[in-house]
Design a protein around this nucleic acid. Structure first.
Lengths: 352, 352
DNA sequence: TTTAGCACTTGAAGGTTTCGAGTGCTAATC
DNA sequence: GATTAGCACTCGAAACCTTCAAGTGCTAAA
C-alpha cells in the first residue's frame, strides 16, 4: 500500500472516529496537507474500497472504515496518545487511595476507564479452572453460628456464614480450621476426594458430624472462586453515540452485558495473550457486538492472570486514547498488587 | 366518589397499564361490563379529569391516569395478584440454594424480581449511621502480609489485606486480633478515640508500631460498612416500554442508577416504614424518575433494616404483580436469615 | 498521473395531506 | 334528572412529496 493511501486511510478513520458520519473526499483535504485534489482522493478512495478497507453506505455518500480498515488502523496507523497530566493524576490518585481487595481495585479502575474515555468500562475476574484455597480460618460467633474464611491461591478472600446443625463450641471450631488447613489447603475442587474427607473426619473425632456441611461449603466456595465475575460501569455513556440509537439493538447489548457469560467467555478465550486485546466488530464473535469494539488488558502477577479491565464502545472508538488509558491503569494496578505499598507514601513527594 | 367512577377509573388504569396508550371511552366498554354507554363514560371521565385523577394528552385523545390517579389506584382499587405456582417455585428454589452472605441473597432476589416482573430489579444495602464491628480476626499469611477479618453488627463480613511496614510473625498477628477484640469490638467509628487507641498501643507493647496502620484500615472498614450499596439488574427490560424510547431521558436514568446516590437517599428517607413503599413519579423527588415508579420493601431482622429489594419501572407499572413479588421475595429472605436453615432440608418434602 | 468540470444519486429535513380515534355538545329518550 | 345517540370538531400519527446539499463517478484536458 502506497504511503499516500495510508495517509488517506488514516485521515478517514480519524475523521470518522471524531464525527461518526461518512467522510467525503473534500473534507479530508482540510485537515491533512495532502498535495492533491479531491478528485485524486476520490480515485484513491475507490481503490481503498476495492481493497476492503472502506465501505460506502450508499452511492452518493462518503466512505466509512470497514472492520478491516479499523484493523489496519489499529495495527499500523495508530498514533500514540499522550495522556494529559490531569488524566495521569486521576489514575494515580484514585488507585492510590484504594487498597486491599483486588475486586475493589478492578471496579474502581473500570469506573475510571469509563469516565476518562467516555465509553463503558468493564472489570473482569476471569473464569479460572482450578483455584485452590491456601488457607482456612474459622471465626466462632455463637454455638449455632460461625464463619468460614478462605484465602484463595489468587489472593481473593471469601467468607461464608455457617449455622451448624448441632451447636458447637469455640474449641471445636478452632480444631476445624486446623483440620481444614491440614487436609484441604492447596487443593482445588477436583482434588478433594473421599479418602481426604475421611481423614478430615477422623481428625475431627467426635465432631466429625459437622464435616459434611463444611465440605459442601468448601465446594461452594471453590465453585464461586472459579466462576468469573464482571462489573460494568458507565453504560450511559454509550447512548451519546448515534450508533446506539437503535433501541432494540441497544437492549440486546444491555442484555449481553447483564448476562456476563458471553463477555467472560470472550476474555477467557483471549486471555492467553498478556498484552492488550482489541476486538473490532464481528471479531468478538458475539452477534450483538458487531457494531461495537471491545478493548481489554489482563492484569498479570507472577505470570498469572488475576483479572482484566476493558472498554466497550462503538467500533469507531478512539483507540489511541483507550489503549493509553488501559495501559496506564493496568500498569498502576500491577504496581499496587506487586509492591503492595498500600498508600503508605501519602504526603511524600512522588518524585522525592 | 361514586362506585361507578371507581370502576371506570380502575378500568382505565388497568387498560393503560397493559397497553400504554391513552384509553378512550369506547375501549373500556369491551372489557368491563358496565351498564352504560360510551357517552356516559365520557361524562364520568370528564369529571374524573376535573377531580385530578385523569389527564388528557391533547383534546382529541383518550385519558391517561395522572399521578394522583395511580396513587388512588394503588391505595384503594388494586386487586391482589395471585402468583402462579411457577413463580412461587422460582422464588423458593432460587433462594433456597443461595446461602451465606446477605449481599448474595439480595443480588439474587433483585435478579429474580427483575425476571419475574419484567422491570428493573434493585438490591439495596442502605446507608447506616453507626455500624460497629463485633468481632475481629487476623489471618497470618507471610511476614509481610496478613488479613484482617471483621464481622459487623449487621452480620456482614469484610476482609482487608494488610502489608505491614515491618515484617511481623504469626504470634504478633494473633496478639493483634485479641487486642482489637478487647478494645474495639462493639465500637462504631465515632467511638474510637485517642485514649482507646493508646490502650491498644500499650497492649501491643513492642509491636505498637503497626497499630496506626491497622486503625486506618479499621476506619476504612467502618466507613465501607456505613456506606450503602446497590445492585441493579435487568435494565434492558425497561427498553421494551415506549416511555423509555427517549434516549436522552433514558440516559439520565441510567446515570442515576449508576451513581446510586439518589436512590440510596430515597430509600434511607423512606426506610422508617417497615412496609412496602410505592413511589409514583415525582413522589420520589428525583427529577429523572418523574416518568417512573419505584416500589421497594425493606428486609428486616430483629427490628433492624438490613437491606431492601425493589423494582423500578414505568409509572404504569403492574403494581399488583410487583407488590406480590416483592412480598413473596422479602418473606422468603427474612425466613432464610431468621431461621438460617441453610438449605439443609434439601430433598425433604417441603410440607413433610 | 493529476485535476477541473459536470451530470447523477441519494438520504435527510421539512412541509403537506390524509386518516381515524376520540372528544364535547346537543337534543332526544328512559 | 340521568342516559344515550348523533354529529361536528380536534389533533397527532403516518404516509407522501419536495427540496436540498453532500458526495460520487466519469470524461476530457493539463
Amino acid at each position: 500500500m502506497s504511503e499516500r493511501k495510508k495517509q488517506i486511510l488514516k485521515a478517514i478513520v480519524d475523521a470518522h472516529i471524531e464525527c461518526g458520519g461518512p467522510v467525503g473526499s473534500k473534507s479530508i483535504l482540510q485537515n491533512r496537507q495532502l498535495n492533491c485534489s479531491s478528485a485524486t482522493i476520490r480515485n484513491e478512495m475507490a481503490e481503498l474500497e476495492e481493497m476492503g478497507y472502506l465501505e460506502q453506505p450508499h452511492t452518493s455518500a462518503g466512505r466509512v472504515p470497514s472492520e478491516l480498515g479499523y484493523r489496519f488502523y489499529v495495527d499500523s496507523l495508530i498514533e500514540h496518545y499522550a495522556m494529559t497530566t490531569s488524566e495521569i493524576a486521576q489514575i494515580n490518585n484514585l488507585l492510590r487511595v484504594k487498597m486491599g481487595e483486588l475486586d475493589q481495585i478492578l471496579a474502581a479502575a473500570s469506573n475510571l476507564a469509563s469516565s476518562l474515555t467516555n465509553y463503558t468500562g468493564i472489570a473482569i475476574k476471569p473464569r479460572l479452572n482450578s483455584v485452590s484455597i491456601t488457607k482456612y480460618e474459622t471465626i466462632f460467633l455463637e454455638p449455632e453460628h460461625y464463619i468460614l474464611v478462605a484465602v484463595a491461591s489468587t489472593g481473593a478472600v471469601k467468607t461464608k456464614h455457617i449455622r451448624p446443625e448441632e451447636p458447637v463450641d469455640p474449641a471445636v471450631v478452632a480444631k476445624l480450621s486446623a483440620a481444614l488447613n491440614l487436609y484441604l489447603s492447596g487443593l482445588c475442587a477436583e482434588e478433594i476426594n473421599l479418602p481426604i474427607i475421611m481423614n478430615l473426619e477422623s481428625h475431627m473425632g467426635a465432631d466429625s458430624g459437622m464435616v459434611s456441611q463444611v465440605i459442601k461449603v468448601v465446594y461452594d466456595l471453590l465453585g464461586e472462586l472459579d466462576q468469573g465475575e464482571m462489573k460494568v460501569s458507565g453504560i450511559n455513556h454509550l447512548l451519546q453515540y448515534p450508533e446506539y440509537s437503535d433501541v432494540g439493538q441497544f437492549q440486546e447489548l444491555l442484555g449481553t452485558l447483564e448476562k456476563k457469560e458471553d463477555i467472560l467467555n470472550l476474555v477467557s478465550r483471549n486471555e492467553s495473550r498478556d498484552d492488550v486485546s482489541v476486538l473490532i466488530g464481528s471479531e468478538s464473535r458475539v452477534e450483538v457486538m458487531s457494531n461495537s469494539a471491545l478493548v481489554f488488558k489482563p492484569i498479570v502477577k507472577d505470570g498469572k492472570t488475576l483479572g482484566a479491565i476493558g472498554v466497550l464502545g462503538p467500533r469507531r472508538m478512539d483507540y489511541a486514547k483507550v489503549l493509553a488509558t488501559l495501559e496506564g491503569l493496568s500498569d498502576n494496578i500491577e504496581n499496587i498488587i506487586r509492591a503492595g505499598k498500600q498508600s503508605k507514601n501519602e504526603g511524600e513527594k512522588p518524585d522525592g
